[in-house]
Design a protein around this nucleic acid. Structure first.
Lengths: 405, 405
DNA sequence: TCGTTTAATAAACAATGCGGATTAAATCTG
DNA sequence: CAGATTTAATCCGCATTGTTTATTAAACGA
């Protein structure tokens, strides 16, 4: 916590005003005053400055007026053109890039379906750079207009340092990918973060967790990700390290050895196991074509007992981990997502059952577990939100300016 | 986060000054200015107010003077008599009560060796009330001089609500114990918290984690407790719920069923298992007398293979949980304590080995695991610290005033 | 057209932190 | 031993901030 001076005071209140406008805009000054508990005068002063800086604009159409009397309220909203940011998501099999405006509206997006697994950092950076430049151009912008870039990727990421400690994407460890990208983009600051953190922020800003200050996000993709919103702030481990759900253990080392959750319930592990099940059979072809997951969902739908048992096992492992997370964090909501969860109840059922079974009675009803089918662009919006938050400037946190050394 | 006004500004800075005096006192105004980055003028103004309020006192002996020139520094320190608080710790087999001054020095303490397990809430409250009144009298004080009481107990505690959601102490759930005690003490506000949270705060203020902003505390007692310090703040789940380490699962529900950590590695479970091992043998007597743990340590020392295997299993389960916690929180330090850990390497060895084995490579070296042998009064000092923190008033957090409804 | 009502701003005020000048209290020096 | 020197602490004036109270702005209704 920093010491307080008038400047910090203003920064805090400006953030609150910005946050109210982002969340509820178009919104009038009086309503901001109501919501933030700031005096009308202060709101006037702050919005005046924000208007001068062109971070917000007036929205002259008063819209619906409750009381038809009196001077009409002037509605304020974020100026979409105040800044533009680029969000990038790296996955094992594709790169997604999107350019958004100051409201996190997606202006242009593109998907590069490229297997990154065996590529060097340089090659990946090349691809990302090209994608960014292309997306920016598609949006009708130049790089000079871009205020920031945020790259989300699976694994353990130390955001403040801009270093990816470990990721299925990179062969190496401790990759200073943020600095790498910043160098390439010529003046545009790039940051990196865990992909789940991006989507967690997106859920908080736009998604199922709007206004919810405590929740968990669990993504089941090629890898497994965990995002934690706690007290309205993204929770990170010490040093800003993002946890990796796949690194959790779901079995003690006694008996038949320990199992990392990633090798029990990730999309990759499920597909690999299913492939063994169907080996030599009529369905093997689909797996060769990389359409294994779809085939699994199809077989589950058809009631294939081996596949159902497989999903049961995976769901059990996931449920085990989720129960422990609920025990630790007691979140009112747990949001799950990932293509594998589309298998109806075949995977989600065992998860819910296991959680219900393993949760201590005192926590039985605290958490609402929901499945959210994400649009592809939610990652990009999350990346945008992450960058925009820096521009808004939440001053009290260590979210502060990112410094590459 | 509250909105900022000059009053909050002052509250924040006053807290920083108080914190510096608490941590480094006796300390001069210039040094406070150095450490807090506040201007000398501001420090002077704030310390002036604190002196007026008699929260701090001057310590005229300048002590060692580095530079023998110039006007000597006036040292400041907390006024021990500024406030008195009582800390209480409830365990299954005893009640510990201690009265401390504003510096968390223990003035008087007493231990009531009573089995609480089968007692009603009313009986327990009676005992606690008597203990408090007695300890206060022993310290030469009256109840009117007591600024606050904090009761620590194992289990899931919702501090802000003052409700114990679940605890081995109480048969019932959702016990509003804070309100119960506040009513009895006639005007003195009582709060409750997880016992591990108290000791975690104590470690932060006085113990092995002074100045460390991220660490975990794991207590192996009758039950298992987990305390989390994150970013210098005690971490609580949503709604201020303390997690309970014993509720973590350490085995998936496949095969031979799931296991709660409490039933694999708590002192109670270890003793119970050992008792079965020695059943009918020469050592059974010790267990009857409630000296089972001592006998276990003795047998482990002597190399009893069955006991060693038992401790190996328990250590494995604990190590499993700790590895997962490190994966989630990446704390630089993990502090463990509890009588069972005194068994030299018989228990700690397996823990360390399991953690090393299960931790992902990227987190292999982040955490330093230490064993701390707590004095009995550290709980009480933690309870005092918890209450004193409210008196100091960290203004930005939800640590705010506790309200019973 | 003028009064009413509500929104937004202006003016006056109080609290705060800060920088520079000033005072306080010790030692050093000749 | 008296004045110079050095360091600590405080005083004074200033800039910034938020709030309260009063004033202006902009609509509608009669």
């Amino acid at each position: 916590m920093k010491t307080a001076d008038p400047e910090l005071m203003r920064a805090i209140n400006r953030f609150h005003v910005m946050d109210a406008i982002r969340r509820f805009g178009p919104i009038s000054r009086v309503e901001i005053s109501d919501r933030t508990q700031l005096s009308a005068t202060t709101v006037s002063a702050i919005t005046g400055a924000l208007l001068d800086d062109e971070l917000i604009i007036t929205h002259q159409l008063g819209g619906i007026r409750d009381a038809a009397r009196g001077r009409p309220r002037v509605m304020l909203e974020l100026n979409p053109a105040a800044a533009y940011v680029v969000g990038v998501k790296l996955a094992l099999d594709q790169i997604t890039v999107a350019t958004t405006n100051f409201r996190a509206d997606v202006l242009s997006s593109l998907v590069l379906p490229i297997r990154l697994q065996r590529q060097s950092v340089t090659v990946i950076a090349d691809l990302v750079e090209d994608g960014i430049r292309r997306s920016v151009a598609d949006a009708g912008l130049t790089m000079e207009q871009i205020s920031g870039v945020c790259v989300g990727l699976p694994g353990v990421v130390e955001r403040l340092a801009g270093v990816c400690r470990a990721s299925p994407i990179f062969g190496e460890r401790d990759v200073p990918f943020a600095a790498e990208m910043t160098d390439r983009l010529g003046g545009v600051v790039a940051t990196i973060d865990s992909d789940v953190n991006l989507v967690t922020l997106a859920e908080h800003w736009f998604g199922q967790a709007r206004g919810l200050d405590d929740f968990l996000v669990i993504s089941v993709e090629a890898g497994l990700g965990l995002g934690i919103m706690h007290n309205g702030e993204l929770f990170r481990g010490a040093n800003g390290l993002s946890p990796d759900l796949g690194d959790l253990m779901v079995r003690p080392p006694t008996g038949n050895g320990s199992t990392r959750l990633a090798s029990a319930a990730s999309e990759a592990s499920i597909v690999a196991e299913a492939r063994e099940i169907v080996a030599g059979g009529e369905h093997e072809h689909a797996f060769r074509l990389g359409r294994g997951l779809e085939k699994i969902l199809e077989l589950a739908e058809a009631g294939d007992p081996q596949i159902l048992a497989l999903l049961e096992r995976a769901g059990g492992a996931l449920g085990f981990a989720i129960a422990n997370l609920i025990t630790l964090f007691a979140p009112p909501k747990v949001i799950m997502a990932g293509a594998a969860l589309e298998a109806g109840d075949a995977l989600v059922g065992p998860i819910r059952r296991t959680v219900a079974e393993l949760l201590p009675p005192s926590l039985a009803d605290v958490s609402d577990i929901v499945v959210h089918h994400w649009q592809d662009d939610i990652w990009a919006r999350g990346a945008a939100a992450m960058t925009l938050r820096d521009l808004y400037g939440a001053p009290w946190n260590t979210t502060g300016p990112v410094v590459h050394r």
